[in-house]
């Protein structure tokens, strides 16, 4: 098999709030021999603020990046962030579907776009192009005994017609990858429930309720950790876990990983490359427990 290679769009969260997602994604892909070619001079994808005001403007912001990727000669752009994914994909599909729309977008761009590349999440290519088997081959520190719930959030697989990936109601891609890494994946019924992210600032009470429900269910199932693929999900469950606890009078101490961090751990990557120190809830008790529980049992 020739080496997997893609254009890479890191997205703004990766530069700040989800730096550890960005670090661990790059480290993991390198370890799996996947070539991520960062789009030179990439810019905002036009996600939350722009697409709420003006579809053409939003598509133009995404379109600039898609155009740059096409100039690199790549036909597929990867991004770790589901929010970027939605906007990039939406812009691409909208432009492919309507010449008229594409013209409007091109008017706003210095360099008009020609060919529109595919957009996929890093998760999608790990699951579809490399496959759980490909991951399993490289695992040197299996996550045996670690019980996790996978939390996909609301937009990673939705709307299904746009995302064309996994099931919108019961996604399983992260489950299979975590199983390949040796973890035990618990049947989490709230995989795609809302964490309250978009109300994160305005209605904190909602986040307390919604994220609280997710953490309660994870705890009830006996999970050692939550695995996510979205910077906003991760932030709500991890950074706000203390707030959730005090609002709901609970005492959760559930580490909330990016799936890339746990896969990287299983591949034996150094902690520094995985950004584990960026997590708010201390992940070390869970990680130290790996392998031990099984022995005890």
């Amino acid at each position: 098999m020739s080496k997997l290679s893609y254009a890479y769009y890191p997205g703004c969260s990766g530069q700040g709030t989800s730096m550890e997602y960005e670090m661990s994604t790059r480290a993991l892909c390198e370890a799996l021999d996947i070539d991520l070619k960062e789009i030179p001079d990439w810019s905002c994808c036009g996600s939350t603020p722009a697409h709420a005001c003006d579809h053409v403007l939003s598509a133009a912001l995404s379109g600039r990046n898609l155009g740059l990727a096409a100039d690199m000669g790549e036909d597929c752009v990867l991004t770790p962030c589901p929010s970027c994914l939605t906007n990039l994909k939406n812009a691409g599909q909208h432009m492919s579907g309507s010449e008229e729309f594409k013209e409007k977008v091109n008017k706003l761009l210095d360099e008009p776009i020609g060919e529109i590349p595919d957009v996929k999440s890093v998760l999608q290519i790990l699951f579809e192009d490399l496959g759980p088997k490909g991951v399993k081959e490289k695992v040197i520190k299996p996550l045996s005994g670690l019980k996790v719930v996978t939390y996909y959030g609301c937009i990673l697989t939705r709307p299904p017609k746009l995302m064309e990936f996994d099931s919108e109601e019961n996604p399983i891609s992260m489950d299979r990858l975590m199983e390949a890494a040796g973890a035990k994946v618990l049947p989490f019924p709230l995989k795609t429930e809302c964490c309250g992210a978009s109300h994160g600032v305005a209605r904190k009470d909602l986040v307390m309720k919604l994220s609280g429900k997710l953490l309660d269910m994870a705890e009830q199932l006996g999970a050692d950790a939550v695995v996510t693929a979205c910077p906003l999900c991760q932030m709500n469950l991890d950074l706000r876990q203390g707030q959730v606890n005090s609002a709901n009078k609970t005492s959760h101490k559930l580490p909330v990983f990016y799936y890339t961090q746990l896969l990287g751990w299983a591949l034996g990557l150094p902690q520094a490359q995985l950004g584990l120190d960026k997590l708010c809830v201390n992940p070390m008790p869970a990680l130290r427990g790996i392998g031990k529980k099984e022995d005890a049992a």
Binding site: S167, E168, E169, N170, P187, P189
Partner: peptide, 9 residues
Amino acid sequence: VYEEYGGGR
């Protein structure tokens, strides 16, 4: 096929 009703799980 209705995963929202549990898909048989």
